[in-house]
Amino acid sequence: MTEIELLSWARGPGLQIATIVFVAGVVIRILEILLLGRKANLAEAKGSEMSNGLRTIVTRTIPDKTTFKRSSVTIVSGYVFHIAMFIPLFFFAPHILFFKDVIGVSWPSLPGAVVDAFAVISIIAMIAVLINRLTNRVMRYLTNFEDLLVWLLTFLPLITGYFAFHRIGLTAPSLLAIHLLSVEVLLIVFPFTKLMHTFTLFLARWYNGAISGYRGVAS
């Protein structure tokens, strides 16, 4: 298989397979959670579940003081990583073209140098996250195989994207193919790992807020 054939496979059948697994996996898992239902609450409602739930989705974005003090490294590096990662993902012109082709919507892109800077920041933040995970005794104790796997599979699209952008090491078609394949692997494992937090985070936050809302207490 030549590098161009590999690239064609990654842009064609590879992407198809990854998309099917990703979409089907995510939709089935979310539906499964939603359809499981909850036991009827026999207590009288003292406030609104919905409004409090929705509010909590937003308010929980800011960590409370105690939590921040306790795990400041995790929180800061986590935030830096997530924000920095969204810039290349959603504002690099070739990526926008991809979204435009698939969902038909497009938006303005950022210059290559800006995208590159944020990619580097997100890579550094990811390395910081890993170092913290491996050096902090409590974190290390809590770490299992899935955590490390998910870290690696998230890191690969970033680093291969960086290499493809700067055309380091291999020929351009190979670099692009490897980058695409790394994204496809990420999409395939996505629904079966904690990467699902991308979607379930909203359900979980809403639920936390809704419980307090029903009881009429602050969440």
Binding site: G12, L15, T19, V23, V26, V27, P94, L97
Partner: peptide, 19 residues
């Protein structure tokens, strides 16, 4: 180059409907 070679929108719709 960054666009999929096949029709991914259709795949997306079918996959979502099936899911």
């Amino acid at each position: 180059l960054s666009m999929p070679t096949d029709n991914l929108t259709q795949t997306l719709k079918y996959a979502a409907a099936g899911a």
